[in-house]
Design a protein around this nucleic acid. Structure first.
Lengths: 104, 104
DNA sequence: TCGACGGTATGACGTTCATCGAACAATCAT
DNA sequence: ATGATTGTTCGATGAACGTCATACCGTCGA
């Protein structure tokens, strides 16, 4: 079982988080992950983005390495999860500010 | 008197703001502008950043074009100002989240 | 009017980045 | 075992970016 480590939040830098968010594709991914619930990587996330598998994988890696997301492996299926609580503690208000609308 | 137009806030995109913030130099500039008070471009802002005049000018332009700042010309002196109120209305919570500390 | 000053525009250079196809790796079903 | 599925890694390519030195431009003071 392969492991995809995400950095400890103590080493996560604000500027790197912002840089990761400063791409249209990645911002959209994060906003779809807004509830913090793990989400399968493949289907509805990028059917409409019209990007190749490898490009999506690149963005998933960037998000994970920036500290924004965590990747969980289940067999041959991967799910991606926004590290919402940890981020809220380290950068209060940031995630809420970039998520779609108010949570209503 | 030359004019340096900043975009209307209605056309400002979140992803462009985040991209502008995703650079160490620009993030630092914005954080020093946090109070929204106009700040002269030259002196204390970048004496310690050890960057050339033209590089700073490039970052100032990027910030202005992204919608984050406004440039005001007084004679041969330029001041830069964070568009704090407009940004707070368009992207609630964002600026506060990336500014140093709580305002105390 | 003429220089000095504050800042911008231009062009160049090296690096990073987003993107893709193809190859690879790991797991599940048969 | 074998093949199909799910996703990552690698190598390449073109665009965007950060940086600098130089040239340029508008303004102020003598």
């Amino acid at each position: 079982m392969t492991d995809y480590p995400s950095p400890d939040m103590s080493g996560v830098e604000l500027v790197d988080v912002l840089r990761a968010l400063g791409d249209p594709v990645r911002l959209q991914i994060v906003r779809r992950l807004g509830d913090g619930v793990p989400c399968p990587k493949t289907p509805e996330i990028w059917e409409d983005l019209n990007l190749s598998k490898s490009t999506m994988s690149h963005h998933f890696r960037t998000l994970r390495e920036s500290g924004l997301t965590r990747t969980v492996v289940h067999g041959r299926t991967h799910t991606i999860q926004l590290r919402k609580d940890e981020l809220a503690e380290k950068f209060p208000g940031l995630i809420e500010a970039i998520l779609p609308d108010p949570p209503r």
